[in-house]
Design a binder for these strands. Structure first.
Length: 268
DNA sequence: CGGGCTGTTGACTC
DNA sequence: AGAGTCAACAGCCC
């Protein structure tokens, strides 16, 4: 479940390791994850030099001398930088570079690797419609985004077209930090609620970025992230005590997803 | 061994 | 606009 912290870390690692390298060959094992045919994809990117890599919500955007490579790991996956002679068995796609290293992409379930030509990045609908990156909003911007909305707060927070980068792993602690229930209706939020929510997004995401992402994901070198269960306050801790008030943490159904809440700190 | 759960996104419906 | 459902089909847990 790669969310903003993991995507931020992977992008930084890719930028560090891959900038300046040239793609010499591409191997496609799962053509379904591409937005164009396998042959088109290969001829578009073979020969390209990596210029820059940066995060955009849950997407990793790579700028090359021949166009854009956009990667979304979907519900989980690995990006590994290895020697081309030592590629991992499990991979759906790999980019081989001119220095005999490779970037191997594995999706656990499914994911996307899309190519977009130079000067056409805004034609990519899935990234063009994303809201602001969760950590690059101002408090005013968050207030503006919430204004006039009626649904449940959690649905809004996970809607990538509203705010980009938050998923179902980090949302539990974010809402708990803000003392807000996932099913709280948006138009009942006052300025103080929104101010707490703004700070809670930072408190929920920044510690994981500092630790290299969540423990259940690995970095480009195959090492697990340092953000562990002990760094999580209430997410996935059903039956344990709320670290703030001692009330038993509950797991509840919120639409199609589950939520972990402290029923005392987070009143509906 | 098998069934349930998990997590993202788009497409689609009402 | 928002809520609901489905499809894409791996791996872990019990």
């Amino acid at each position: 479940m790669p969310e903003l912290p993991e995507i931020t870390c992977r992008s930084a690692e890719m930028k560090k390791e891959l900038t300046g390298k040239m793609i010499s060959e591409i191997e496609v094992i799962q053509p379904k994850s591409l937005n164009i045919s396998e042959n088109e994809f290969k001829s578009a990117l073979v020969g390209a030099e990596i210029l820059d890599v940066y995060p955009r919500g849950k997407w990793i955007i790579t700028n090359t001398s021949q166009g854009w490579l956009l990667i979304n790991l979907g519900m989980g996956g690995e990006l590994l930088h290895t020697q081309t002679s030592q590629k991992p068995e499990k991979r759906r796609l790999s980019l081989e570079f001119d220095d005999n290293s490779s970037l191997c992409i594995n999706f656990w379930w499914f994911g996307y690797a899309h190519f977009i030509p130079i000067s056409a990045l805004n034609s990519h609908a899935m990234t063009a419609k994303l809201g602001p990156n969760a950590l690059e909003m101002s408090p005013d911007q968050l207030q503006f985004l919430l204004k006039g909305k009626r649904g449940a707060l959690k649905t809004f927070m996970l809607d990538q077209s509203k705010i980009a980068g938050i998923g179902n792993a980090y949302i539990h602690d974010i809402l708990w930090f803000a003392y807000l229930h996932p099913l709280r209706v948006i138009d009942s939020l006052d300025n103080e609620d929104i101010a707490r929510l703004f700070q809670a997004i930072k408190d929920g995401l920044l510690p994981s970025i500092k630790k290299g992402g969540a423990f259940y994901e690995v970095n480009l070198y195959g090492e697990k992230g340092g953000f562990s269960m002990e760094d999580i306050f209430i997410g996935y801790k059903e039956g344990k005590d709320c670290p703030r008030c001692g009330t038993t943490i509950e797991k509840i159904k919120t639409g199609s997803t589950s939520s972990f809440i402290c029923p005392s700190c987070q009143k509906y």
